[in-house]
């Protein structure tokens, strides 16, 4: 990877971090409502994996901590922020909200609130690809908590049985909502849980984007070439609470501090500085530019664009012409 791409990746992670922090502010200002689940600390996972996918063509699906997966899939950040602000120009026209982002134009298929719900959807995208004889793959990002749902086991079985091209990414942040993994799960190494289904799997550090990309490249190539599922577990940590209403009382300060030392942006920045790809000054300038862009382009747009019309509240329940036939 050349210096230009390295700088771009660093900027993308920084953008993701600042975007989420700005969302938190807007939430406190009540410009964003509902539940809000933010991604700081996990940026190397979505950005690293999708760097190695064919975004726009491969199908991507995830749970409710979905902002950065949507961005890296190619969603316009303005459409994302407008959605969070409940606006008609939002990616889901203000009908979805933070947990229900959609952009079928770039094959970002959502944004779901039910833990484990996207497993079968991802397999379904792969089934459609298989029927069409396409070369795309389906990529499903979920957390470790989702693996205790029935849909995990049912989908792993069928995806393997039917050779469906799905890449399952497990973002293992060690907590299912507020319960530590060892208190909820017998086998805490998630990649071992797909072995009985005959699915190839690996586990790696999710904080170092170079490590993530190396594993993701292998995983993506495997699924694309073998037309079979693959399971990649990324060991990561969310630096904020589960959602904005989470005090985080279930984690020790020492633990959070220890993981903060392994902040994916910090790791990558240090590496690039040491390699002479960026200087400290350039990094600060980049940070300033990112924050300016978010404030002056993204947030301003979200504030200024209009809300949906109340007269349209029943629109989209059915498709237009859903009763047509023949």
């Amino acid at each position: 990877m050349d210096a230009t791409d390295q700088k771009r990746l660093l900027r993308e992670m920084l953008f993701a971090r600042r975007f989420e922090e700005r969302c938190a502010e807007a939430y406190h200002e009540r410009q964003i409502g509902g539940f809000l689940h933010l991604y700081p600390g996990e940026e190397a996972c979505a950005i690293g994996v999708l760097e190695k996918a064919q975004t726009g063509s491969d199908y991507v699906v995830t749970g409710y901590r979905d902002h950065i997966h949507a961005l890296k899939s190619g969603m316009d950040p303005k459409a994302l922020m407008a959605e969070l602000f409940g606006k008609e120009a939002g990616c889901s026209k203000g009908r979805g909200g933070s947990m229900h982002l959609f952009d079928p134009d770039v094959h970002f298929m959502g944004g779901y609130a039910l833990v484990g719900g996207p497993f079968p959807l991802a397999a379904g995208f792969a089934k459609a690809i298989q029927l069409r004889g396409g070369q795309e793959i389906s990529i499903c990002f979920l957390g470790d908590g989702a693996n205790n749902q029935g849909t995990f086991h049912e989908t792993m079985n069928m995806a393997s049985l039917w050779n469906l091209p799905v890449l399952f990414i497990c973002e293992n942040n060690l907590y299912g909502i507020g319960t530590a993994i060892e208190r909820s799960t017998v086998e805490i190494n998630q990649y071992k849980r797909v072995a009985p289904y005959g699915i190839e799997a690996a586990q790696c550090d999710g904080q170092d984007i170079d490590i993530v990309m190396a594993h993701a490249e292998k995983a993506v190539n495997y699924v694309r070439e073998q037309r079979k599922p693959y399971f990649l577990e990324l060991m990561t940590y969310r630096l904020r609470g589960h959602s904005m209403s989470d005090s985080g009382a279930y984690r020790s300060k020492e633990e959070v501090e220890e993981w903060a030392q392994r902040d994916p942006i910090g790791i990558y920045k240090r590496r690039l500085v040491e390699a002479g790809v960026v200087t400290e000054d350039e990094f600060h300038a980049m940070d300033k530019a990112v924050q300016d862009e978010i404030e002056n382009e993204v947030v301003r747009y979200a504030i200024e664009c209009p809300e949906p019309r109340v007269e349209d509240v029943t629109r989209y329940v059915y498709t237009e012409g859903g009763n047509n036939h023949g």
């Binding site: 990616c91 889901s92 203000g94 979805g96 959609f102 079928p104 959502g110 989209y316 329940v317």
Partner: peptide, 9 residues
């Protein structure tokens, strides 16, 4: 899905 995607899916 159709409603919550604003009619996009």
């Amino acid at each position: 899905i159709h409603y919550m995607s604003g009619g996009r899916i």
